[in-house]
Structures are given as structure tokens and as C-alpha cells.
Amino acid sequence: MSLLSIRNLTVRLGRAAHAPAILEDVSLDVQPGETVGLVGESGSGKSTLGMSVLRLTPPLLAEGTSGEILWNGQDVLKMRGKALRQLRGGEMSMILQDPMASLNPVFSVGSQLGEALKRAGRADLQAAAEAALAEVNIPSPAERLRSFPHQLSGGMRQRVVSAIGLAQEPKLIICDEPTTALDATIQFQFLELLRALQKAHGMAMLFVTHDFGVVARICDRVAVMYAGRIVETGPVREIFRNPRHPYTRALLAAVPSTREAPDRLPVIDGAPPSVGNRPEGCAFHPRCPLATDRCRTQPRMEPQAPGHDAACWHAKEVAAA
């Protein structure tokens, strides 16, 4: 059984049936221990999807949420009070882009970490906290426990957030662009750390990002999002080698590389549509070189190869090209 199974999730801006949808009919599974990348441009709904899993969307969106998010077979959308609190920060935890949003500036690292460890029922808090910081490669942990968040660098803060997130041994950790604000060399080390922690704890990871480099580095599977829908999903190698959706293909081609300097980068014309302005049918068709009249109706996700699905009427042509 999947650890997390999102079924036909739709998130609208409010309860009304015709309200603009940020997410439309999204289905996605996460198996125990695997890392799934959610990749897309701004406005694709990838962050909303991450937030929805923990029921952390703002009230307007929460009202407009339908579908199922099954966690060990239980629907997260139907959970109340205590069950939800147990889920958040317990079985699931989250790392956000801005670590200061997760840390309280007036409490020391030690007291915030201690609180999380206490909730996890740990006995010797001081020793446990030191061990937790050591595990996320923070040098001289005993000293750092007395530090306040603002005294740490961005990379260190993000490590502290991970240590707190790991305190209750979560089975799934949702990362929403955790390295976007970090410098390249710091990002690299943090991703290495996440990978190591994941292996050590056997956690699954849902990794929201806009960066294909990050996806290639740490994900097992990837779901590509465009205008509120998953347009393609599959094993990382398969998606990078044989993309079947024209969007995925064009996006991958548009990433510059250190290995070569072409005269021009292949581009996708136009810009991603805003939430209220999504085109009828396949939302990508106005920007798609392969678009035909057929694309005015929404294509379904169809299997392309084992574990590899894409929602495109012209997936076969993309494969042939």
C-alpha cells in the first residue's frame, strides 16, 4: 500500500463550483522510503499541493478542497483536531523555503528542539538534542543549542529545522523549495544531508522545487506540474531521458548547462497562465508547437512506459521526435 495516496485532489479558490481552481484533479502516490519530486514553474500549484497534504492551506482554499488524501488508508481531509495534530510534526513534517518561518526568533535552538523531542517522548533532552544537532552535521552542538535562530547562517537554520522535523521520526517529510534561498555550495551540502537522513530513517520525501538539477540529484520519481495539473509523472531517469509531454521536453531543453554554450536556448513562447486565466482543454496548448484542435479537450493521464504516465494527445509524436 502507498504511504500517501492523493486521489483526484481539486483545490478551488472558495466553495463555489465555478471558482478558479489552483489544483485540478491531481492524483499522486508516494511509497515508503522514496523521494518524489514535484516540479513546475510559479503558479503551477506545486506548493499548494504540498501544503494541502498537511492541511495547511488558507481557509479559502481549505473550503474549496475536494478529493482524497489517503495517509495509511485514512483520509487526511476528514481528520479533525487531535488526529491532525498527531499527523503534523509527528508522522509528517515539513521544511519550508524560509527557515525563519519555521523557527521562533525569541527561543533558543535548544528550547525549540527540546520541545519537539519532549513531544516525541524522549527522556534525556539535553543529550538527545545534542545528538540531533550532531546528526544534521552541526559543529559543536552543545554550544549551538544555546544560539538563537538569527545567530545562525541560512544553511545552519535549515539544518536546525530538519533536526526539529526529524525529532518525532516522521515517515514522510515534505520539502517546499528548502534550498532555493541557499547558496549553491550550501545547497549541495544540505541536499547531501537530506539524502543521508532519508536513508538512515527510511523516510519518504515529497520534494517541491522548480529546479531540475535538484530533481536529478535527489529524486526517485518526479511529477511535472503545469497550470494546476500533473502533466507527466515517472521515474526520474525515464522523465529526463524520454519525456513524453511537450512541456517537460521543452522545459528540460531550456535549462542551460555548464558543459556547452549553444548560440540560443530553445524556448517556450509566452508565459504560464495565471490561475483565473487557464486555457480550455490542455492548458499548455497555446504554447505548444504540436497543438491541434484535439488539444482543446483535456487529455487523460495515459501510461507511456512502466510507471511513466503523461497527459498529452501527442505523446507518441513527442517520443518519436
Binding site: 547562517s153 544553511g155 547558496d183 549553491a184 549541495f188 551540502q189 538539477g213 529526463f240 555548464t258
Partner: peptide, 25 residues
Amino acid sequence: QALLAATLSADPDAPEMATRPQGEI
């Protein structure tokens, strides 16, 4: 070299660089 190793290429089979970034700025 560390900067180059940290520049993640959009390729899951990209070779590992010999020099890996370490430490804080």
C-alpha cells in the same frame, strides 16, 4: 571546482565531481 560540483545539472547520470563543496562561508 566546488562551485562547479554544486551546479547541479539536469541529468540524473551526471558524473560526481572530485571536489565536493564543504564547510560554511
